[in-house]
């Protein structure tokens, strides 16, 4: 039960983080469309790092 609450919290946190990353990346691309490729790569890397963190927490908590 507590596991599931924890998992929910992790997903909420990860979701907020990913949303921030994605939103800021979109803003950046809208502001500078010529840098879209670089921003996308950086976005994916940061997203992956966040994902690793969230998955790590999920698995440690399981």
């Amino acid at each position: 039960m507590y596991n599931l609450i924890g998992a929910g919290l992790i997903v909420i946190g990860g979701g907020i983080g990913l949303g921030q990353i994605g939103g800021k990346a979109m803003e950046g691309i809208a502001r500078q469309p010529e840098a879209a490729g670089k921003i996308q790569t950086a976005m994916i890397i940061i997203g992956a790092l966040l994902e690793g963190l969230a998955f790590g927490a999920l698995i440690l908590g399981k």
Binding site: A48, G52, F55, G56, I59
Partner: peptide, 14 residues
């Protein structure tokens, strides 16, 4: 140590 750990967890979990 956490760098490879996050690598392996990410791939596995996904």
């Amino acid at each position: 140590l956490t760098k490879p750990f996050s690598l392996l967890i990410r791939l596995f979990a996904n």
